[in-house]
C-alpha cells in the first residue's frame, strides 16, 4: 500500500524560558524528539502514549499549528511545510477531530454556521445548506440540529458535529485526537462505529491518537507507542498485542484494568508498573525509559538505543534488541 503521510526524523522543541544568571541558557521542552514513520493509505494508524509523550504535538504539527524544529512531514509527495502558509488544497486534505468537544465548537455559533465555514472555504461552488444537511445526515443527526447551539447538545452529539466539520472539506486524511476519551463508555461505541463506517465509505486514512490500548486493539491496523517524544515500538496491531517487545509497552499493557479472565490472560504477567514519566524538560540520559525499566542494563543509562526491525513490520527501540 502507498504511504500517504510520512514523518521523517520530526523534531519539535519548545523554548519555555531561560535559566542561568550570567550565561542565559534556553530551557527547552523536547516534545517530539526525532520520530520517523509512515501512515499508509486507507489504514487506521494508532499512536498511543501517556500525557507528556508528545502524541498531541505530533497531531498539532501535522495540521500546521506548529512548524517542525527539524525534520519533515510529507503528504503523498508534498512537503507540508514547503510554503510559509499552508495552501488551501493541502488544508482540505488533512483535517482533525479534537478531544474536547466542549472547546472545539464555538458556543456562539449554531451547528449550521459551524459547518458552513469549511464548506464555504473548500467547496465554494456548492449549495451550503444542502451540503450542511447532507453532512448532518452522514453523522446520523437529524436536521433539527442545524440551528442548535453547542451547549444544548450532549457530548456525543457535539463530537458528531465535530466529525461532520472535519469531513466537510472532503479530506483524505483525518487525525482523531482522543475523540472519545471525554465521553461516557455507553456512547463511545456509537461514535467509534460511526468513525469506522465513515472510513469505509469515504476511503479515509486515520491517525488515531489515544491512551486507551483496549480501544486500539479494536480499531487500529497498526500501532506505535510513544514515550517522551520518541517512538519505542511500532507494529501491526494483531502482532503488537500478541508479542509486545518493549518493556514500556509491556508495562502499559499490564496496567490496563480489564473485565474478564480472557483479557487478563493477554496482559504481561511479570511486569509491574513503577515510577512516573519524567518531566520532558529533564529527559533522562541514554534510553529515556531506563529509570522505570524493570530490565535495564548498564548501557541503557548511557546510550540511546536505535530502532531495530525485529520482525517484518515490527520495530523496537530497546537495547534488549540490538541491531544485528
Amino acid at each position: 500500500m502507498a504511504d500517504i503521510l510520512t514523518f521523517n526524523d520530526l523534531k519539535k522543541h519548545f523554548v519555555i524560558g531561560q535559566e542561568g544568571f550570567l550565561r542565559r541558557e534556553p530551557i527547552t521542552v523536547k516534545a517530539v524528539d526525532g520520530i520517523s514513520f509512515a501512515v499508509q493509505e486507507g489504514e487506521t494508524f494508532g499512536l498511543v502514549g501517556e500525557s507528556g509523550s508528545g502524541k498531541s504535538t505530533v497531531a498539532y504539527t501535522t495540521i500546521g499549528m506548529y512548524r517542525p524544529t527539524t525534520g519533515t512531514i510529507r503528504f503523498r509527495d508534498k512537503d507540508l511545510f514547503a510554503d510559509k502558509k499552508r495552501p488551501l488544497a493541502l488544508r482540505k486534505q488533512i483535517q482533525i477531530v479534537f478531544q474536547d468537544p466542549g472547546s472545539s465548537l464555538n458556543p456562539r455559533r449554531t451547528v449550521a454556521q459551524i459547518l458552513a465555514l469549511p464548506l464555504r472555504l473548500h467547496r465554494p461552488q456548492e449549495n451550503v445548506l444542502q451540503q450542511t444537511a447532507q453532512l448532518l445526515d452522514m453523522v446520523e443527526l437529524t436536521l433539527e440540529y442545524m440551528h442548535k447551539y453547542p451547549q444544548t447538545l450532549s457530548g456525543g452529539e457535539k463530537q458528531m458535529v465535530a466529525i461532520a466539520r472535519a469531513l466537510a472539506t472532503e479530506p483524505s486524511f483525518v487525525i482523531l485526537d482522543e475523540p472519545t476519551s471525554a465521553l461516557d463508555v455507553s456512547i463511545q461505541g456509537k461514535i467509534i462505529n460511526l468513525i469506522m463506517r465513515l472510513q469505509r465509505e469515504f476511503n479515509l486514512t486515520y491517525l488515531f491518537i489515544t491512551h486507551d490500548l483496549s480501544l486500539m486493539r479494536n480499531v487500529a491496523s497498526r500501532v506505535a507507542i510513544m514515550y517522551l517524544g520518541k517512538i519505542c515500538e511500532i507494529a501491526d496491531a494483531v502482532e503488537f498485542f500478541r508479542t509486545p517487545y518493549h518493556p514500556y509497552t509491556q508495562m502499559l499493557l499490564a496496567s490496563i484494568p480489564v473485565l474478564s479472565e480472557e483479557e487478563e490472560a493477554l496482559k504481561p504477567r511479570k511486569t509491574v508498573s513503577r515510577g512516573e514519566i519524567p518531566s520532558p524538560v529533564n529527559i533522562p540520559s541514554g534510553c529515556s525509559f531506563h529509570l522505570r525499566c524493570p530490565r535495564h542494563m548498564d548501557i541503557c543509562s548511557v546510550v540511546d538505543p536505535v530502532m531495530v526491525e525485529v520482525e517484518a513490520g515490527h520495530s523496537v527501540r530497546c537495547h534488549l534488541f540490538p541491531p544485528s
Partner: peptide
C-alpha cells in the same frame, strides 16, 4: 458490552 476488550472483536454500539 460497550467497553472495548483487549481480546478484540470490534466495539459494540453501546446503549
Amino acid at each position: 458490552e460497550a467497553v472495548p476488550r483487549l481480546t478484540g472483536g470490534g466495539v459494540s454500539d453501546g446503549i
